[in-house]
Computed example of a mutant assay.
Amino acid sequence: MPVPGERQGVRVVAHKVLNNNVVISVDEQGRERVLMGRGLGFQLKASDAIDPAKVEKTFVIDQSGDPEHTRRVLADVPYPVIEAVSAAVDGAERQLERDLGRRLLIAVIDHIQYVLERLDAGIRIPTTNMPELRVLHPQEFAAAATMATVISSRLDRALPDEEAVFLTMHLLNATRDEPNGTAAQLFRRVQHVVATVERGLGVTLDVENPDYARFVLHVQFLLQRLVSQSMLRSNDSSFFEFARVKYPESYRIAEDVKSYVAAATGSALSDEELLYLIVHVERLAAQIGRDTSGSDVLS
């Protein structure tokens, strides 16, 4: 069988042997290509021909990133971890129906190895829930949860519950057509707004309530409108004035959000945006059996 990704009939030789399972060759375009397979590099030396029957996976090293880091990860991480993560990433690509790129593979291998080393050292890993991720990025979160299950099963190791969260962030970095870190920055800002509202209401919101999901999605779109400079605006301020007077506590909380957003983005919310925030906060207040005008909410 030909080496995956190589033209049939071309003799492939080793350029660098990273370990018994990972070898680097150089293709006809002069690109470094990683070839992986159990026992592939055993007793192999530079310039030796590579047995194509032993090659299980191959990819080109991204020279625009940090190729030395890629080589180091593949040389140092135990091959069962590389195999498990490779299978998980392949599954995520099928689930999301897109190519996630080789940077994701290396990033997740590096991350999982770090997690395993912490677990082996008995270091307690705090639980990270981040329910907003399930609402904002359900497809990526589902794929990440499956990835965590695949890795855990193949390594026969229990991974911390929050691995689905961390793997979701890795997937977002790989799938968003935005500058690096933009998705994570947006998510952190959504989290901060949610925390501001929870602090103002004095409660932890019920993440299973549909109003919570609507609120989180609204905040995401609000922040995206700020970036694109397409905030909601209206010439009629009567509804805003009514909400401000009718729901003073929700208005105060919305103003706290407005202050945070201004500090984080340098943009001030319009009264129309503030109005919709007040409405959403009032709905959330109804979850806890009251409204912010001072009267009880009927259940």
Rank of each mutant, 00 (worst) to 15 (best):
F166I: 06
S152C: 14
T128H: 08
T146K: 15
M147R: 11
P160C: 09
D161Y: 15
M130H: 07
D161G: 13
T146H: 14
A143E: 11
T175K: 02
D156I: 02
T146V: 15
M169E: 10
R124C: 05
M147S: 14
T127S: 11
L159G: 03
L159A: 03
E132Y: 00
V135A: 04
D120R: 15
A144D: 05
I123R: 10
Q139L: 12
L136S: 01
R134C: 12
L136A: 00
D120E: 15
A121H: 07
H170V: 02
R134Y: 09
M169A: 08
R124G: 05
L136E: 01
N129E: 11
L159M: 06
H137W: 09
A145D: 06
P131N: 02
A164G: 15
I123Q: 09
I125G: 05
L167C: 15
E163C: 13
E132N: 02
F166G: 02
Q139G: 14
E162H: 13
A142T: 11
Q139N: 14
P131M: 05
T175P: 07
V165Y: 01
A164N: 09
V135F: 01
A174I: 07
T127K: 09
N173K: 03
I123F: 05
D161V: 13
P138T: 15
E163T: 12
T127H: 08
M169T: 07
S153G: 08
T149C: 09
T146L: 13
S152A: 13
N173A: 08
T128V: 12
E140W: 15
L133S: 04
L155R: 08
N173F: 00
A145R: 04
L171G: 05
L172R: 04
A164Q: 13
V135S: 01
L172S: 01
D156T: 04
V135N: 00
T127N: 11
G122I: 01
F166A: 05
R157E: 00
A174D: 03
N129Y: 09
V150N: 08
G122M: 00
A158E: 07
A142G: 10
L133M: 10
A145Y: 04
L159Q: 03
E162N: 05
N129G: 11
A121L: 08
V150M: 06
F166R: 11
D161L: 14
D120H: 08
G122Y: 02
G122P: 04
I125N: 03
V165D: 01
T149W: 07
A164R: 06
D156Y: 00
R154V: 07
R134L: 14
F141Q: 07
R157M: 11
P138H: 15
